[in-house]
C-alpha cells in the first residue's frame, strides 16, 4: 500500500539499529527483543505537552503491554540527557531512545522523520521476528492513544495461534 508520508509499511523487515537509551545510556534497539512484539513509538520531542501525555500514558499502560509480552521503545531526536530528565519527571520506565547522532537517522530509516528536524508522531509494531505488522502516522498535535497498538498486538497473537495451531 502506498503511503504519501513515507512511513514504513506492514510486511517490511524492520531496519536494525542501536542507539543510547534510558535509563543508563546503554545501546538499545529492536533486535535485542526478538521473540517478543516491539512497539516503536516515534514522537517529536521530549517536554512538548502532547508527547508527555503520550509517553506517560504508555507507562501507565505497562501492565497491559506486559500481557502481550510487548516491549515499548520511545524514540525521539533528543539527547540521552533530555530523555533521562523527561523519563524521571513522568515516571517513564521503558527505554527512551536517543536518535541524536547522526540526528534522526533511525526516524529516517522508518520514514518517520520530518523536515522541521523532529520525528513524526508515528507508531510501528514489529512482530516477534522483526517484521513490521502495523504502522500508524498521527498529526503531530494528536496523541494517538494506544487502542491501535493493542488491536495490532491482538492481531499478532491471533496470527501466531493460527501458525502454531
Amino acid at each position: 500500500m502506498s503511503d504519501p508520508n513515507g512511513l514504513i509499511q506492514p510486511g517490511r523487515i524492520a531496519p536494525g539499529f542501536t542507539v543510547p537509551a534510558t535509563p543508563d545510556g546503554g545501546l538499545t534497539g529492536p533486535e535485542q527483543f526478538r521473540g517478543r512484539p516491539v512497539v516503536l513509538a516515534f514522537y517529536p520531542a521530549d517536554w512538548s505537552p502532547v508527547c508527555g501525555d503520550q509517553m506517560a500514558l504508555y507507562q501507565s499502560a505497562a501492565p497491559v503491554f506486559a500481557q502481550y509480552q510487548a516491549v515499548v521503545l520511545g524514540v525521539s531526536v533528543d539527547s540521552i540527557w533530555s530523555h533521562r530528565a523527561f523519563a524521571e519527571s513522568r515516571g517513564i520506565e521503558f527505554p527512551l531512545l536517543a536518535d541524536f547522532e547522526p540526528k534522526g537517522e533511525v526516524a529516517r530509516q522508518y520514514g518517520a522523520y520530518q523536515p522541521r528536524g523532529e520525528a513524526a508522531r508515528a507508531l510501528v509494531v514489529l512482530d516477534p521476528a522483526g517484521t513490521v505488522s502495523w504502522s500508524h502516522l498521527s498529526p503531530p498535535d494528536v496523541n494517538p492513544g494506544a487502542d491501535g497498538i493493542f488491536d495490532a498486538l491482538d492481531q499478532l497473537a491471533a496470527d501466531r495461534k493460527v501458525t502454531v495451531g
Partner: peptide, 15 residues
C-alpha cells in the same frame, strides 16, 4: 479500577 483503565485504553483514551 484496573478494569476501567484497560477498557479506557482499549477505547482510545489518550489522556
Amino acid at each position: 479500577v484496573r478494569r476501567d483503565f484497560v477498557g479506557g485504553i482499549r477505547s482510545g483514551v489518550n489522556g
